[in-house]
């Protein structure tokens, strides 16, 4: 950000206001959901929706009471799928990228080429095939069915290889080996901390990818106690079509679910280093 200003230029109101309009467009739905979540279900349909009301707490209580706190179960499930999933994925990507960057072994080129082809395979296309396969072994409708398929991330491995090559000096690895350290120890205790800043980026990408992947849990899970928030709320909205009182629950649930993400996102903002090599998009 800190550019040296050669000469002070006068502010441009046109460019500043275009960006502010863009910002307003992006913040508007968030602002709306905060206001709408403060209304009870009759106010939602009868009052101007941008006027705040006083029922936010009541709505939270009502949402928490819905089927014995099912919503909070969904929140925990989401934390499990996205948190544990992204952590495991980061570790697997890190060790694979580290080996690719720091070891010379026969077949390395071929292994990496096959993995890179995986980058091109969109995750969503895989969801239905993964279902067919997990159905064969009777693993559908379990936590594993959502967690396991999302641990492998060819793109994460690709990034980790770049980070490992840049951040872990060969001398350090050699020195540790001469001291008699095992390879796994060298990786976990020496290389991993050195790669940490890059790994945060991989973690964030994977976290968002899992949290965004609606289709996989939607297909895999039948038991609503295993749902993540996204699938749960989409189901609630479905019921809302016949019972509009559900809308208040859906709106409150949507608000509560984006708060932790927005916080996480703002706190870790500096790790979003998205350069060309790091081009990924949410599906």
């Amino acid at each position: 950000m800190a550019k040296t200003r050669v000469f002070r230029q006068k502010p441009s109101y046109v460019s500043t206001s275009i960006l502010l309009i863009g910002a307003a467009y992006c913040l508007f739905p968030v602002f709306w959901v905060v206001m709408a979540a403060s209304k009870d279900s009759s106010e939602l349909f009868s009052t101007f929706t941008l006027m705040p009301s006083t029922h936010l707490w009541d709505n939270i209580v009502e949402l928490s009471a819905y089927r014995d706190g099912l919503y909070w179960r969904w929140v925990l499930n989401t934390a499990l799928y996205a948190g544990i999933g992204a952590l495991s994925s980061t570790w697997v990507s890190a060790i694979s990228g580290y080996v690719m960057a720091k070891f010379a072994f026969p077949g390395k080129g071929k292994v990496f080429a096959v993995l890179l082809m995986g980058v091109l395979v969109p995750g969503v296309i895989l969801a239905i095939p993964q279902y067919f396969l997990l159905a064969l072994v009777g693993l559908t409708n379990t936590y594993w069915s959502v967690l396991l398929p999302q641990i492998i991330s060819p793109y994460g491995i690709y990034l980790a290889r770049i980070y490992a090559a840049a951040a872990v000096p060969n001398d350090v690895i050699e020195a540790a080996r001469t001291e008699g350290a095992g390879e796994l120890y060298v990786f976990n205790r020496i290389a991993l901390p050195m790669m940490a800043p890059g790994l945060v980026t991989i973690f964030l990408f994977q976290f968002v990818a899992v949290w965004n992947n609606f289709m996989l849990p939607y297909i895999m899970l039948g038991n609503d106690a295993l749902y993540p928030v996204t699938v749960g709320l989409s189901g609630l909205l479905n019921q809302g079509a016949t019972a509009p009182a559900m809308y208040t629950l859906v709106i409150t649930g949507a608000l509560l679910s984006i708060i932790p993400l927005v916080v996480l996102f703002l706190v870790l903002q500096r790790y979003w280093k998205v350069d060309l090599a790091a081009g990924a998009v949410k599906a």
Partner: peptide, 9 residues
Amino acid sequence: LPYAVPAVI
């Protein structure tokens, strides 16, 4: 910021 909001939400 909307990048942090999943498509369903």
